[in-house]
Amino acid sequence: MFGAAFGVALGALTMFINGFLSPWGVAGVVMPYQMAGMALIGFMGGVYRRVLGKNPVEITDPPRILNLEVSFLAASLTLAYDVITNIGWALPYGVPIIVALIQGAWFTVVHVASNIVFFGSAFFILVRVISNLIGENPWSFRKEV
């Protein structure tokens, strides 16, 4: 909604805060990788927004293909995030990266599946809610990229 640069900053900041307040405990050495992963997701969100172009009809009444697109994009980005964070866990502890990925396989599956469902069903609803909150049509919001 707010562009790639904002997405990067928001993603990194979110994981920075999460690194201290997460119910799983303080993130520690993984935190920079979490920040990088979420920054990537923020960046890709900005890029996707740019690629979609200016089409307010799609946001108020998104076609099914757009919901599918968002789900698939969420799946890929979730996988990318998990790969990055697994690398962040594997490197400091000297675990081979492939082993770290395989050990976390089921967690990744659950993570990806839940995001597919969440993004496919709630993404555009959230966009509309935020649009109403800030009182602007996000599709005409000034882009930074």
């Binding site: 697109e69 994009l73 799946a75 890929s76 396989a105 990744t108 599956v109 990806v112």
Partner: peptide
């Protein structure tokens, strides 16, 4: 759309590979 669906397909392949590896 095709690019994104391709990414999703690759994601599923990677996940299947990881689960098989597990």
């Amino acid at each position: 759309s095709l690019t994104i669906f391709g990414l999703g397909w690759l994601t599923s392949l990677v996940l299947v590979g990881c689960v098989a590896g597990y």
